[in-house]
Design a protein around this nucleic acid. Structure first.
Length: 476
DNA sequence: ATGTTC
């Protein structure tokens, strides 16, 4: 993106002037290099978001932003229902409540290396991955309804995981206000056999090593220790979320004129929060959030089963589970005024600072773990919410590395086997049902996640706590 | 992201 016309209003915060239909400014968090790597389309999309009815404060793009459907991926925007504010299916994204959870193991990475190949093999057998992957759990209509209402709470009640896990999940494992009965039959049907599956694209389960600690105090509170192994799970709401996104994007686009909304881009389809359609989407989307929370909970249970067989001394405790594709009603201070807002985070992670009431007691004094999945074969990060993030971006931060090139271009530049061999030479085992998928996810197709989190820290979005490097990657 | 195009 060209820097001309942008004003660096704070370190690594670039403001786009409020022009045309924009109701608020647009702010992009980046250094000069990340800004140069950003598509012009990110600027266009974030300006479009800034023109939507009822938007509050500003439209924000995170340091890992790239262009997406309507909203950029890495976009944050909050709306006031009483001021005609809208909810947008494109502002949440197709993979509703896609997110990351991190499990500590209390075990040295050396113990993983001793069983690395068989552990990778057994994880790949236990964790269904790939396009259309299905699991052994089949839900009937009543179970589907219970799952969509209960989220991870439902999963734990069914024996998938431990009651103490729930404290370490956003919304304590269950998103309130879900309306399972309004979720279409088609969406429910698509999800029937997809619980506890990874899916494809950039979703993965990785066994990683804590390679570096940058904040010893917070790391200790998070039970992260140098040289120990952790498990990171990145996935979302599978076919159900995708079906909901498809249905509501269409319906919101058709209904927009009737709501008096002129869309700058059809892909920005949205409806007033106060409208029947807006309320209906919110209820269905919350069911999608519960689906993703239950899915990651079942994947955790499957991973624990494999670890129990190979490393019985390992105890896979949940550090935290946080989503990066949601719209949630939250309390925020805007210009020192307390307001209730509907915050869209699409490819952006909630990042609550110390003292936030939504955090469990064990984490409240230090702040929320902000879990950042890097690209396959590189590094991932644990950050902690910074109190400055509330003013900077409504307590939000980045979510990953962000693509630097298209899937198509990546598949031209690399082969799956080549990438796999390169990583094997560095001691990383990658298992995937799709060679093309591995090529599309080649580390070189992504921006530097290290640079993204450094900018996030300098911009006051979140502070770095620990750097994680992969040992085993189970890839969709 | 996605029964990788209704």
């Amino acid at each position: 993106m060209e820097r001309a016309g942008l004003t660096e209003v704070a370190p690594h915060a670039w403001q786009m002037p409020q022009t045309g239909a924009m109701r608020v400014p647009a702010i992009i968090y980046a250094n000069r290099q990340l800004l140069a790597q950003m598509d012009e389309k990110v600027g266009e999309q974030i300006r479009n978001v800034a023109s939507l009815p009822g938007i509050v404060a500003a439209a924000y793009a995170m340091p890992d932003a790239h262009w997406g459907y309507g909203f950029p991926i890495g976009g944050v925007a909050a709306f006031d229902a009483a001021a005609g504010g809208v909810v947008s299916a494109g502002g949440v994204g197709f993979d509703i409540s896609c997110g990351v959870r991190l499990l500590t193991t209390g075990t040295d990475a050396g113990r993983i290396r001793a069983v690395q190949a068989p552990l990778a093999h057994e994880l790949s057998r236990a964790i269904p991955a790939g396009v259309g992957s299905h699991g052994r759990i089949l839900l009937d209509a009543a179970q589907m309804t219970a799952m969509l209402a209960g989220g991870a709470r439902w999963a734990v009640a069914r024996g998938y995981g431990w009651p103490e896990d729930l404290e370490r999940i956003e919304e304590r494992g269950c998103m309130a206000g879900a309306t399972p009965e309004v979720v279409s039959d088609k969406a429910r049907r698509r999800q029937r056999d997809e619980m506890g599956t990874l899916g494809s694209g950039n979703h993965y389960l990785e066994v990683q090593e804590v390679a570096e600690i940058l904040d010893a105090e917070v790391a200790a509170a998070y039970d992260l220790h140098p040289g120990e192994a952790v498990v990171m799970i990145h996935c979302g709401s599978r076919g159900l979320g995708h079906q909901i996104g498809t249905e509501y994007l269409r319906e919101m686009a058709l209904a927009a004129p009737g709501h008096g909304i002129r869309l700058p881009d059809r892909e920005l389809a949205c409806a007033p929060i106060a409208s029947e359609l807006g309320q209906r989407y919110l209820g269905v989307m919350r069911a999608g959030i519960n689906c993703a929370l239950a899915n990651r909970q079942i994947l955790t249970h499957l991973a624990r089963g494999v670890f129990d067989r190979f490393l019985p001394e390992a105890r896979l405790g949940l550090l935290y589970d946080v989503s990066h594709n949601t719209c949630k009603e939250e309390a925020h201070a805007v210009d020192d005024v307390a307001r209730r807002l509907f915050v869209h985070r699409k490819g952006a992670t909630r990042a609550l600072g110390p003292g936030a009431p939504a955090l469990p007691p064990a984490l409240r004094p230090v702040g929320q773990p902000v879990l950042i999945g890097g690209s396959m074969g590189t590094e991932s990060w644990v950050l902690v919410g910074d109190p400055r993030s509330e003013a900077a971006a409504l307590s939000s931060a980045c979510h990953g590395a962000g693509r630097a090139m298209s899937r198509h271009a990546a598949a031209r530049n690399w082969t799956g086997s080549g990438v796999q061999q390169d990583l094997a030479a560095r001691g990383i085992i990658v298992k995937s049902p799709s060679k093309r998928g591995i090529a599309e996810e080649a580390p070189g197709a992504y921006k530097s996640v290290g640079q993204v989190v450094e900018v996030a820290e300098k911009a006051g979005l979140a502070r770095r706590v620990a750097r994680l490097v992969p040992l085993i990657c189970i890839k969709g």
